Amino acid sequence: MTATDLWRLMTPADLPAVQAAGEIVHPLYPESPAVAAERLMLYPAGCLVAERDGQLLGYAVSHPALLGRPPALDSLLGSLPERPDCLYLHDIALLPTARGLGLGAALVARLLGLAKVQGFPLLALTAVNNSAGYWQRQGFTPHQPDAVLAAKLASYGEDALYLVRAVD
């Protein structure tokens, strides 16, 4: 089984395990369980889990967004924008047991495919936990923040960096 095969669409039944994984991987960036539940309701195609032998290895929560306008940490969207111009990778967490399996690269490939099908020219994300180097190796580049984006990034901490990648 390849790393690509380990990713599948998230279901509401996955939400407790997703919350638990988020608390392990992102303890400094807590979000209410309502955040992932809302994203799953609004854009199920962008919510994925990786699992092997019935054990959660990680998850991804993404949704259509406006470039440079990510949601603040632990905030609900209410709705998706009418004219989104990117697919925003809101939350990605891989548990320590997932390291070395290639799940990150497989996820990026899957989300690039989703963005292409949906007509989004860009993927965007906010890198935290000193992960910017990893994302840059995956083809993402820094996006210069304006004052609005800088304020949003502040909710994620000093090392937060907004990155984008063109959809080929």
Rank of each mutant, 00 (worst) to 15 (best):
M10F: 02
V35N: 03
Q55P: 00
E51C: 08
V18K: 02
P70A: 00
V128T: 15
V25A: 08
H26K: 06
G113Y: 14
A50D: 05
A115S: 07
G22T: 03
A36W: 00
P64T: 11
L149F: 07
L103S: 11
M10D: 03
R69I: 08
V148M: 01
A13S: 14
P33L: 13
T126G: 11
L48I: 07
A151D: 15
A151I: 06
P142K: 02
Y59I: 02
H26F: 05
A93D: 05
N130S: 09
C86H: 10
A60N: 14
A13D: 15
R52H: 13
L149W: 06
P145R: 00
G104H: 01
A37R: 12
P84T: 01
V61N: 08
A109W: 09
G133Q: 06
L42D: 04
D74F: 10
L122W: 15
I24E: 13
R69H: 01
L112M: 08
A17V: 03
F120R: 01
A150T: 10
L114G: 11
L48W: 15
K116N: 09
A13W: 07
E51V: 02
L107Y: 10
Y88I: 00
D74G: 08
D91Y: 06
A60T: 10
L73Y: 03
G68K: 01
D53S: 12
A147Q: 11
P84R: 10
L114H: 10
A34W: 09
R99W: 08
V35R: 00
L95P: 00
F120Y: 14
A65L: 07
C47S: 15
M1G: 12
Q55E: 14
L40D: 03
P121L: 11
H63R: 08
R69P: 09
A166V: 09
P84Y: 06
L66Q: 14
T2P: 14
R39L: 14
A34V: 12
A127S: 15
Y162H: 12
P27F: 08
F140E: 09
A93V: 12
T97G: 04
V25G: 05
G54N: 05
L114P: 07
H143G: 03
F140H: 04
I92T: 11
M41F: 00
L76D: 04
H143P: 07
M10V: 02
G46P: 08
D91Q: 08
S79A: 15
G104E: 05
K152F: 05
N130L: 08
P33F: 14
Q55H: 09
R165S: 10
L80H: 06
D5H: 10
I24R: 15
L111Y: 13
A37F: 03
W7N: 05
Q55T: 12
S79Y: 04
D14A: 07
L48S: 05
L9N: 14
L122H: 12
Q138F: 00
A105T: 12
A132T: 01
P81E: 05
E31Q: 12
V164W: 01
S32Y: 04
L42A: 02
